[in-house]
């Protein structure tokens, strides 16, 4: 009796073990034992669909609206091509490009060196395609009497050295609303506004910033909280918030963000937008990118509140 019990325990252990080993063996065949990433199966690999097939675009939430509009227009004009667009942030897009789970990484920042290295290790050569510019609007609650701020004042607010609106013409406690640290908008704001473009600067966001997940989250938080200040893509501005005129480092008059002021460079807080692809991407992907960079694609960039290249 006892012996048979032990045998059955041994056998069940063997069953479980072999099932697990069987599951584990596959990732090792793809020669990436160190990477804790789910191995991508052939079937789910984009670009493997032959002629027609699906183009998968992923990345920046800032670019989500415009990328979706482009995909819809392109699909309408080219039946047989299917484009799926999703967000998650610029970093997510680059990771997906590296893991070969997308064809196009939408990004609101340039690819980092370490990401390029990772991509090369997996046989992917990222190509940068500039598709336009994004103006970042600084927004406050409608009840806030402040109309304009200098870049330095915005920087001091977000660093935490100015924690009351009293000195700036408003009143009450400042509530700092930000994106989370994985957002491309966050990184851009950190480099250009907090550090004022100085890479060696040790200035940082105050720890008390609220790190929210998306542009609409930031906008709603600013709508609800009187002391709030936030920053969102120009395409997400609506009349529920008040947009602040920004005075650049050189001084002069405050400039409101708009397509014109971003394009002529007079608005100080704007950044380039990219779609990254693999150098050896299938033709359907390069065709799509040339369409995006052409007149029709650029018209959509403008229509969505961004600035054409």
């Amino acid at each position: 009796m006892r012996r048979s019990q032990w045998t059955s325990i041994a056998i069940s252990l063997g069953l479980v073990g072999s099932a697990l080993l069987g599951g584990c063996a596959k990732p090792e065949e793809t020669e990436e034992p160190a990477a804790p990433v789910v191995s991508t199966k052939k079937a789910s690999q984009p670009g493997a669909g032959g002629a027609g097939g699906e183009i998968v675009a992923k990345g920046s939430d800032t670019l989500l609206q415009v990328a979706q509009a482009m995909a819809e227009a392109y699909q309408a004009a080219n039946p047989g091509v299917k484009i799926s667009v999703s967000g998650g942030g610029s970093g997510t897009g680059f990771q997906a490009l590296i893991e070969k789970t997308c064809d196009i990484a939408n990004a609101s920042r340039q690819i980092k060196n370490e990401e390029v290295e990772q991509a090369k290790a997996k046989g992917i050569e990222p190509v940068e395609n500039l598709i336009g510019y994004d103006g970042i609007a600084v927004i406050v609650n409608k009840a806030n009497p402040v109309n304009e701020l200098t870049v330095d004042q915005i920087s001091d607010l977000y660093v935490g050295s100015t924690n009351s609106w009293d000195k700036l013409g408003g009143k009450g406690e400042v509530v700092l609303v930000s994106r989370d640290s994985t957002s491309g908008t966050y990184e851009y704001f950190l480099e250009e506004i907090i550090k004022k473009g100085d890479k060696k600067s040790t200035r940082e966001f105050a720890p008390s910033i609220m790190a929210l997940q998306s542009n609409p989250d930031v906008r709603r938080q600013v709508t609800e909280s009187e002391g709030a200040i936030g920053y969102i893509g120009l395409g997400y501005v609506d009349d529920s918030v008040k947009v602040i005129g920004v005075i650049g480092k050189k001084g002069g008059a405050a400039v409101m963000p708009s397509v014109e002021t971003v394009k002529d460079g007079s608005y100080p807080i704007s950044r380039p937008l990219y779609m990254y692809t693999d150098k050896n991407a299938p033709k359907k992907v390069s065709d799509y990118i040339s369409w995006v960079l052409g007149d029709e694609g650029q018209a959509i960039v403008k229509e969505k509140g961004f600035v054409p290249k």
Partner: peptide, 11 residues
């Protein structure tokens, strides 16, 4: 939850 998805692996 907020950061894992966008962090480069093995960093």
């Amino acid at each position: 939850a907020a950061e894992m998805g966008e962090t480069a692996h093995q960093t």
